[in-house]
Nucleic acid binder design. Structure first.
Lengths: 212, 212
DNA sequence: TGATATACTCAACATTAGTTGAGTATAATA
DNA sequence: TATTATACTCAACTAATGTTGAGTATATCA
C-alpha cells in the first residue's frame, strides 16, 4: 500500500468524502459521492479505487458505506460538522505555510462543542513559562490563527523556528511577549534581534494527564 | 418523539449498536446487529424500531447503515474505538447510581488519544480551590471512577450532594480532602459529620475558554 | 379477561449500493 | 510514438440491506 501523491482532482474527491462523512456521521455511498461531484457512479468509483490504491482510504469490499479514511485531507479542518479534526503541529515553520502537512505530528478529532470558533490547530506546550495562567508543560493548546491579536491575549509566537506560548503585553511601555512565570524573562518585540512571528491566539486547552 | 424508558433487552441492543458503531467506525446494518445478538433480522429490526419509537436512535429510512444514535447508553464509555462519548455530569447523586442518565447535562465525544484509560465522564469545575494544581473555574475534568484512589491523587468527591475536586491527602496525620488554594480549608475525612463519597480520580482536563 | 407490549421465527420482496465491462478523450511518461 | 494514468459516460449485474406480512409465546396492563 504505497502512499503516492494525489492529483488535484483526487484531493478534491477525498475532501468531498471527508465532508460527507462528517455531515452524515457515516461514510458516504459511491452514489452519494458521485452525486456530490456531479459525475457518474462509475466515475466516482474509479476515484475511490485510486484513493485506495494510493493508500488514502480503505474500502471494505462488498459492504455498504465501506469507505474508511486513512489519511484525512487537511481541508477538513475548517469544515463544520460533528467531529472537528485538528492537527497537532510539531514544528512551526518560520516561513509562510503555517498549515502545511509536513509539520503535523498527529491529528485529533474534537467534538464541535469544545472547539472554540476559529480554532485551527493544536500545539503541545513545552515548559512552564505560562504557569501563572495555569498552562503547564505538556498541555495541548488550541490555537486560532491571528497574526494581530489584541494586547493582553495569550498568543503562540515563533521565535527562531521554535514555538512558544506567551502573553502579548508591555514591559516599561514597550511591546513584549510576557511569560506568566516570574522565573522567565519577557521578550521585547521592538528590537529586531531575532525573527519573531505571532501565529495566533490560544483559545482552549487540553490536559491529557495530570502531574502529581 | 417521546422518550420513554428502555427494557433491559432494549438497553442491551442499544449498547450493542453503539459498540458496533465504534468498532466499525460506522453504523451497523440490521443484519450485523442481528448476527451479534444471535437473532433473526426481523427480530433485530423490531428492536431497532422500538429504540427509534422511544427516541434513542434515528433511522434514516431506506438508507444502508441508517442508524444514528441520539442518546448513547453509558456502556459505550468503556469501549474502545475512535470517538469516545463522555457524559458531562451536572449533579452527582449522593446515592448509588453514579452514571444514571438523569444527571447528564451534555455528552461530548472525544478522540481516543486524548481520553486516558478508564475515563468515564466529565465534570465542570466550580471555583478555584484547586488553582495550585492549575485547575480553574470552568474547566472540564475527566474522571476515572474509583472509590479508593491512592493518597496524593486529585479526586472528585461528593459532599452533601455537591461534587468537588480536591487532592486526597493528610492534614496533621489525618486523611482529608486538601484544596491546593491556601484560601480554602481542608475537609477531614475521618469525622463523619457530613456524608462524603469519593467518586473517582481526575485523569484529564479540558479548558474551553481562557480567562483574561 | 381481552388488549397491548415485548421478544422473537420464517419467508419474501424491493431497493440500495457495490462492482464490472466496454468505451471516449486528454495528458503525462517511457 | 506507444503506453499508461487520469477522468470521465453508459449500461448492466449481483450482492447487500431495508422493509413487510404472518405467526408464536410470554408478560403486563386496564
Amino acid at each position: 500500500m504505497m502512499v503516492e501523491g494525489l492529483t488535484e482532482r483526487q484531493r478534491e474527491v477525498l475532501t468531498i468524502i471527508a465532508r460527507l462523512m462528517e455531515q452524515g456521521k457515516r461514510p458516504p455511498t459511491v452514489r452519494e459521492v458521485a452525486r456530490t461531484l456531479s459525475i457518474t457512479v462509475r466515475g466516482a468509483y474509479d476515484h475511490i479505487r485510486s484513493l485506495e490504491r494510493k493508500g488514502y482510504i480503505d474500502i471494505r469490499r462488498g459492504s455498504a458505506r465501506g469507505i474508511e479514511i486513512l489519511k484525512p485531507p487537511f481541508s477538513i479542518i475548517s469544515t463544520s460538522g460533528q467531529g472537528i479534526p485538528l492537527p497537532i503541529l510539531g514544528q512551526i515553520p518560520a516561513g509562510d505555510p503555517l498549515l502545511s502537512e509536513e509539520y503535523w505530528i498527529d491529528t485529533i478529532s474534537l467534538d464541535r462543542s469544545i472547539v472554540p470558533d476559529g480554532a485551527a490547530f493544536m500545539l503541545e506546550v513545552t515548559g512552564d513559562s505560562m504557569i501563572g495562567d495555569h498552562i503547564v508543560d505538556g498541555d495541548l493548546v488550541l490555537v486560532r490563527p491571528n497574526p494581530q491579536p489584541p494586547e493582553g491575549t495569550i498568543v503562540v509566537a515563533v521565535i527562531d523556528d521554535e514555538a512558544t506560548v506567551k502573553r502579548l503585553g508591555r514591559v516599561e511601555g514597550r511591546p513584549a511577549l510576557v511569560p506568566s512565570n516570574p522565573a522567565f524573562s519577557p521578550i521585547p518585540l521592538d528590537e529586531e534581534v531575532r525573527e519573531i512571528r505571532i501565529v495566533g491566539e490560544v483559545v482552549g486547552l487540553i490536559r491529557r494527564r495530570l502531574r502529581r
